[in-house]
């Protein structure tokens, strides 16, 4: 078997100057990327038959902690640039992080809008149930930023951010559980990535933000030092920046960097 693969490799090396690297890659990715990455995996494996991808999702900060404790993975795909940067400073990466997509934050309500929320101001109405991400994960940090920016808008009540905090029914441990909670009807509103809201489609309604208020999230991927398939991992990282990958990402509401 090994011999055949070896001969095959020689044969194709003669035909094409650079044989495609291969390997089994474990990709730890931000929870919000489940849908686009399922599609990216299909497309990448179709054009790179010698590489198989195993995807595992959780909050980027959780994945970063797992890598610090020795998780044997090849790539981290993070919803922020801080987590890969932190790993780089700890000497756990092989090569620089690559930002490959951007996302924005959105305020959403379940279909039917039971609490009749029409503007971000309405989130401060007492006794609402709002679901947000925990402050320790990237989405939670972006959410904090969004609320601070909204609070500075003209017409927003004093103590706006504090009133919203009082309405927070749950701080979820990653972006996917924020989506799961509101899809189960457990909240009047949630703050999540715009791409997630788009994938959820008609089940959620996005509440418009005031002009000029915008929080952008950057998705950055990095090859890990623990990777035993460095060439294949670098191949996938570079592929994320190709027009093919960009088109798939765009379909899920993610914009180029």
């Amino acid at each position: 078997m090994v011999l055949i693969v070896g001969l095959d490799g020689c044969a194709s090396a003669a035909a094409t100057p650079t044989p495609q690297p291969g390997g089994a890659l474990t990709v730890l990715a931000a929870a919000s990327l489940q849908a686009p990455f399922a599609e990216l995996k299909r497309a990448f494996q179709a054009s790179h038959p010698r590489t198989t991808l195993t995807l595992a999702f959780d909050a980027s900060s959780t994945l970063r902690a797992q890598i610090e404790q020795g998780a044997p993975a090849d790539l981290l795909v993070s919803a922020d640039v801080a987590s890969p940067a932190r790993l780089a400073s700890e000497g756990l990466t092989a090569g620089p992080p690559v930002t490959f997509a951007r996302d924005t934050l959105a305020i959403v309500v379940p279909a039917g809008n039971p609490a009749r929320i029409s503007s971000p101001i309405d989130l401060a109405v007492p006794n609402l149930r709002i679901v947000v991400a925990a402050a320790t994960v990237p989405l939670g940090m972006y959410t904090q930023l969004l609320l601070e920016r909204l609070a500075k808008q003209p017409g927003y009540p004093p103590g706006y951010a504090a009133r919203i905090v009082a309405n927070v029914a749950s701080r979820e441990e990653n972006a996917a559980t924020v989506l799961a909670r509101i899809e189960l009807g457990e909240a009047d509103a949630a703050i999540m990535y715009a791409s997630q809201a788009r994938i959820a489609g008609a089940r959620l309604t996005v509440i418009g933000l005031p002009a000029g208020v915008r929080v952008t999230a950057s998705y950055a991927a990095v090859v890990l030092k623990a990777s035993r398939s460095g060439p294949a991992a670098n191949d996938f990282l570079a592929w994320l920046r190709t027009p093919i990958a960009g088109a798939i990402l765009a379909r899920f509401g993610l914009t180029p960097p």
């Binding site: 195993t54 999702f57 990653n174 559980t177």
Partner: peptide
């Protein structure tokens, strides 16, 4: 998945999946 995702972990993980 396939390596360390046992049934109870899959219950938690798939609950979050689209």
């Amino acid at each position: 998945p396939g390596r360390t995702q046992t049934l109870p972990v899959a219950v938690y993980s798939e609950f979050q999946a689209i």
